[in-house]
């Protein structure tokens, strides 16, 4: 039914993948070069003649990179878990129950997801500073709600709507209460959707930059994106360490993407495509 692929098509694919992946490959190759090969003429030869893991060692020994990874993991995980739970109730009501003002609420959720972060940052910063929450995990988890919650609600609503309604009706007929219907009938069917939502929220929280940059300025509370961006020294830029750190961040992401690609794609496209 669909057009068949020909050799030129595969050539195009190879070129496309190469173009997309080239920066990562180059970072990978640079990360195992010794310092002397990162500068000067040798900077442009792809393969190092004396490969070394020095940059990787340096990333973890000379920089608090482990700390950054841990901070990012804590903040992103807590943000994800709590927003997905709060959002799942709201999304269930929006998708499955009848009440007035549903479109209005969905409209608010959508517009909040379009809010520019910069428009919320000054009050949030001043508030967190006054109550002493700058340089803490909570200081990031609270503002991360601004994008994580609308995103989760939006995604979960589309997932809940895909669950066939007759199961719910059947449960109601058997005399199940609303909460029973939710926990026993809807939840088990919604788990894949919730999981997908969790992946996307986690990625969004992991990648956040502006709040992390302004609120947690203490090295002990910096997250990975801010940490890497601040690697640049006063006078020199440690390219070896930067490429190693990039590889360290990218490899788990590549693995995650390879495992969950179907879910991620379904989550990314669910809001934008009518079925």
């Amino acid at each position: 039914m669909r057009k068949k692929a020909n050799p030129f098509f595969y050539l195009f694919l190879v070129v496309f993948v190469f173009f997309v992946m080239f920066p990562f490959l180059w970072m990978l190759l640079s990360s195992i070069k010794p310092l002397s090969e990162l500068f000067g003429d040798k900077a442009f030869t792809p393969f190092s003649s004396h490969p070394t893991f020095q940059s990787y060692v340096s990333v973890f020994v000379d920089y608090p990179f482990m700390r950054y990874l841990w901070n990012s993991a804590v903040v992103s995980t807590i943000t994800t878990v709590y927003t997905v739970i709060v959002a799942s109730f709201a999304a269930y009501a929006i998708a499955r129950l009848q009440f007035k003002g549903k479109t209005f609420i969905l409209g608010i959720v959508l517009s909040v997801s379009m809010f520019p972060q910069i428009a919320t940052i000054s009050p949030i910063y001043i508030f967190l500073k006054n109550i002493g929450l700058t340089n803490s995990y909570l200081g990031l988890i609270i503002p991360y709600t601004t994008f994580a919650l609308p995103l989760s609600i939006w995604l979960l609503v589309t997932f809940y709507r895909k669950i066939p309604g007759d199961l719910e009706e059947a449960a109601k007929m058997d005399g199940a209460t609303l909460m029973q219907t939710y926990w026993k009938v809807i939840m088990p069917l919604a788990v894949p959707g919730m999981f997908t939502t969790a992946i996307l929220v986690f990625i969004a929280a992991w990648n956040e930059f502006l709040f992390a940059l302004t609120i947690n300025t203490d090295t002990n509370y910096k997250t990975v994106p801010v940490g890497i961006a601040m690697f640049q020294g006063q006078f020199t830029i440690p390219w070896g360490e930067i490429s190693a750190a990039t590889v360290v961040v990218t490899v788990p992401l590549v693995i995650m993407v390879l495992i969950f690609q179907r879910r991620i794609v379904s989550g990314l496209t669910s809001g934008s495509v009518k079925e």
């Binding site: 997309v20 920066p23 990648n207 990039t246 794609v265």
Partner: peptide, 25 residues
């Protein structure tokens, strides 16, 4: 699958990290 994964990777890595990467390139 391979194409889909390679499409997703630039999207998935933190913008700040990819910006740092490109400033090297």
């Amino acid at each position: 699958g391979l194409i889909r994964a390679s499409i997703l990777i630039p999207w998935a890595i933190p913008t700040a990290v990819s910006a740092m990467m490109w400033s090297f390139l």
